[in-house]
Design a protein around this nucleic acid. Structure first.
Lengths: 240, 240
DNA sequence: GTCTATAATACGATAGAC
DNA sequence: GTCTATCGTATTATAGAC
């Protein structure tokens, strides 16, 4: 794998919060009502960011039901009532978090270009997704938890935003199939397979570390994973 | 895909419970102590099976923390104290369930034969795992939930049983690599990829149905999945 | 905006009659 | 073995002082 390819991967932010343009959806109702532009105070912005960061930590570890406001408040260095001053309920925090992270989560797929070479485009997508599993495992587990439970909080987002994006990008893959560059198949399953294989390294981290006997801070298997997945998707696994 | 191959797949039981040899681990302490053989009564066997079936339904849907004894008791058509007569705690039920189902869950991998053809063996493994996702999605989600939370209840089982089995079967794949039939790679990642892609159809069912616009009882996409995954792993996705 | 105190309920587990 | 009743605790959310 060339360094040129690696360098072309978009940078992944260390934290997804703290952007000045932050909007948390339901929290807007508390902004000044008399003004046309709902402007957030500096303390609002930083505290909401602290809460969402804490919530990501706790929700991704324990799931929605397993997480408690106590733990989130402690992680955010805040009292529980103060936390509920910024978000009106536990569910509110969860939805705000998922909504805020969905764009980040789908960014790699957005980068899929119709005019690129199929091998190059798929390789880049795999690398980018794998990099996100390595660097943002909490986000991966947050979504895995939510979808596993039936996506009760982001069901509509899946049926609209996700549906639109996937089918738009599936059309690109279909064009490669029509051009004879890929075998005939439902192109959406190509996307499913890339999601599954890459996110597996974040979501099933404990299992993988058990099998590979890797310590918690050892991420050396990600290099093997990238090499293997590239081999697999480029059709070079089985040989004649 | 030939019918011969399909027919060679081992049958998957509709329910994993009710076997007369049922042992639930901690529940043994209540058996007659004075006798050498801890014999379970008929009512014990049927009730424990009913509880485990109900627990599978509830745990797989809501996760360990999200599940309540009330819901399990209702599903088992039993009072809550009566349920706790057979299992001493909620955690007990969960561990008994996971332990009982682990063998079933790993059965497809056990079938991997060293003397078979790599293409044939991998195809069979994929088909068997995919069939389990289709027919036993609750079991898939039960394990996904558990591993996602750090495998707090079956950590030791992963580090022993799973480690042993995977590395034993990885040796078979390694022998295929050594024979030049597969590309050089860490063979354990081959297993990870098959787990990830097949279990994805059970664990992320809601997401897949959102993208494909499939109703809850529509399983027609599994045929596409099998065709695609076979194409992918047989190295026939990308074409020159 | 932040806090202490507390209301209101959900839940795991037990007591004790039958 | 099964039940009703209940204990004790954890947890979400609110009240109201500052």
């Amino acid at each position: 794998m060339s360094d040129i390819v690696k360098d072309s991967l978009p940078a992944i932010p260390e934290t997804a919060f703290g952007d000045s343009g932050a909007e948390t959806g339901t929290a807007d109702s508390r902004a000044e009502i008399g003004t046309a532009h709902k402007q957030k105070t500096r303390i609002q912005i930083t505290n909401e960011a602290k809460i969402l960061e804490a919530a990501l930590e706790v929700f991704s570890k324990d799931g929605f039901r397993g997480a408690t406001l106590d733990r989130i408040a402690t992680a955010a260095e805040m009292s529980k009532p103060n936390l509920l001053y910024y978000f009106s309920s536990k569910e509110d925090i969860h939805i705000a978090l998922l909504t805020k992270l969905l764009d980040l989560w789908l960014a790699p797929l957005r980068n899929l270009r119709a005019d690129g070479d199929p091998r190059e485009e798929l390789s880049l997508y795999i690398q980018h997704k794998l990099q996100m599993s390595r660097q943002l495992p909490r986000e991966s587990r947050l979504f895995a938890n939510e979808v596993l439970r039936g996506a009760q909080h982001i069901g509509p987002l899946l049926k609209e935003n996700l549906y639109d994006l996937v089918n738009e990008k599936a059309a690109i893959i279909q064009s490669w199939i029509d051009a004879g560059k890929l075998a005939p198949c439902d192109p959406r399953h190509v996307i499913f397979a890339i999601w599954a294989t890459t996110q597996h390294y974040a979501d099933f981290d404990v299992q993988i570390r058990s099998v590979l006997r890797r310590d918690d801070d050892d991420q050396s298997h990600y290099a093997d994973a990238e090499q293997f997945l590239t081999t697999l998707f480029m059709g070079q696994l089985v040989k004649d």
